[in-house]
Amino acid sequence: MSKKAATDSPVEDDAKAAAEDIAAIERTLAGEMSAFDELIERYQRRAVAVAYRLLGNIDDAQEVCQESFLRAYRSLSGLQERGRFGPWLMRIVSNQSLNFRRGRRPMLSLHGDDDESGDSQAASIKSRGEEGDSLEASELQGAIAAAIESLPDPQRLALVLFAIEEMPQKDVAEILECSVEMVKWNVFQARKTLKEKLKSFLEE
């Protein structure tokens, strides 16, 4: 690791990422299509992860993300804060996912390799279920899915973006178009609801 890389702060990293986004956007608007491909490559993993958490189906998530990137491209010239492309894109992905979900109402699944980086309570419950037999694990997965499915959209989104995707609260607030305090409240209420609904598993 270079000395510069070792001393870069998160603020410097954010500033560098914002500068790269701005440059890519300007090149895209100038007609360089490969520049938008760079933005897709940079944000595709997170976009698909967010959509998957909200929809529970990888094919649906990829379809939503494809539409979201298309919408972002068409609206790119209207983006005033070009250094905030990431949160702006996640807002599009979130809205598209919710619209898709309202139309088809798929069941959310929490099964995935990146559960450990998400909400510790849900991950802990999941790991306990995997220690039991397959029937118990299946029952647990169903309980988790049903509990998160029952959350109001703002709480579900806040939980997914902040607790599972580990996005900064200010970015989540921007995506949800609310205050940071409201993000905190939604996450708190979501966790409270999950704890209550999954109480029988937590007590085992």
Rank of each mutant, 00 (worst) to 15 (best):
residue 136 E to R: 12
residue 60 D to Q: 04
residue 29 L to F: 08
residue 189 Q to K: 14
residue 1 M to G: 12
residue 75 S to H: 05
residue 156 R to K: 13
residue 72 A to P: 02
residue 22 I to A: 08
residue 181 E to R: 06
residue 90 M to E: 10
residue 140 L to S: 03
residue 137 A to G: 13
residue 52 Y to R: 12
residue 161 L to I: 02
residue 53 R to E: 05
residue 108 L to Y: 03
residue 200 S to T: 15
residue 49 A to I: 04
residue 86 G to T: 07
residue 21 D to E: 10
residue 96 Q to R: 14
residue 119 D to T: 01
residue 67 E to F: 10
residue 167 M to K: 08
residue 107 M to A: 15
residue 165 E to K: 01
residue 152 P to D: 08
residue 179 S to E: 12
residue 196 E to K: 14
residue 69 F to W: 11
residue 4 K to W: 10
residue 70 L to H: 04
residue 177 E to H: 00
residue 4 K to I: 15
residue 32 E to A: 11
residue 152 P to R: 13
residue 192 K to Q: 07
residue 4 K to M: 13
residue 61 A to L: 10
residue 93 V to K: 03
residue 165 E to R: 02
residue 58 I to E: 05
residue 1 M to V: 14
residue 179 S to N: 03
residue 105 R to D: 15
residue 91 R to T: 07
residue 77 S to F: 00
residue 128 R to T: 11
residue 24 A to C: 12
residue 199 K to I: 05
residue 63 E to C: 01
residue 68 S to H: 02
residue 58 I to Q: 09
residue 28 T to Q: 09
residue 133 D to I: 07
residue 171 D to K: 14
residue 19 A to P: 00
residue 189 Q to V: 02
residue 71 R to D: 10
residue 25 I to Q: 06
residue 184 K to R: 07
residue 67 E to R: 15
residue 40 I to N: 10
residue 87 P to V: 04
residue 157 L to H: 00
residue 190 A to Y: 08
residue 194 L to R: 03
residue 19 A to C: 08
residue 12 E to W: 11
residue 12 E to K: 12
residue 109 S to T: 15
residue 51 A to S: 12
residue 57 N to L: 07
residue 137 A to C: 11
residue 103 G to E: 04
residue 68 S to F: 09
residue 175 I to K: 00
residue 195 K to E: 04
residue 120 S to C: 00
residue 192 K to A: 15
residue 17 A to G: 00
residue 144 I to L: 13
residue 50 V to A: 10
residue 69 F to D: 04
residue 121 Q to G: 03
residue 15 A to Y: 04
residue 75 S to G: 05
residue 62 Q to E: 14
residue 112 G to W: 07
residue 45 R to I: 09
residue 169 Q to D: 05
residue 204 E to C: 01
residue 159 L to I: 06
residue 139 E to V: 06
residue 156 R to I: 12
residue 15 A to M: 13
residue 13 D to E: 08
residue 82 R to E: 05
residue 187 V to P: 00
residue 30 A to R: 12
residue 49 A to Y: 09
residue 84 R to W: 13
residue 46 R to W: 10
residue 139 E to M: 09
residue 117 S to Y: 03
residue 165 E to W: 09
residue 187 V to E: 00
residue 31 G to L: 05
residue 155 Q to H: 09
residue 134 S to P: 01
residue 181 E to I: 01
residue 56 G to T: 05
residue 164 I to E: 15
residue 156 R to H: 13
residue 27 R to W: 05
residue 159 L to F: 10
residue 44 Q to W: 14
residue 3 K to A: 15
residue 12 E to N: 11
residue 39 L to P: 01
residue 33 M to V: 14
residue 194 L to N: 14
residue 176 L to Y: 02
residue 163 A to L: 01
residue 108 L to I: 15
